[in-house]
Amino acid sequence: MTQQPLTEVAETLSDGIVVSIYGDIDLQRSPDLRIALIQHTEGSHGRLIVDLTSVSYMDSSGVATLVEVLQYQCRSGGSLILCNLQPNVQSIFEISKLDSVFNIVPDIDTARTA
């Protein structure tokens, strides 16, 4: 059986990349997610759009990973945009009051023009 990748570069933009994340993000998978996203951003040096369509569950370790990536992007002059959050995932950003810290948009088309 082929295992689904954790992340995948879905699209290359003129000023960045779109990365899709797959599956639940918890304490087991968030360390690998951190490494994968940092590796993707090292190659792009611009906008990082993270498509969360295929993430139906995320805990605080996943949110912490995205905070790290956001800080990394800010330091390196890039940006981070999150799109297509499912309600379960959106709610954890709201409860932790991080929905105002991240640039969260409804869909990929909005993210491309954000």
Partner: peptide, 13 residues
Amino acid sequence: LDDIRPGGLGVHL
């Protein structure tokens, strides 16, 4: 929550 950094969210949630 004003302290934006990775970690420390679990107990809050």
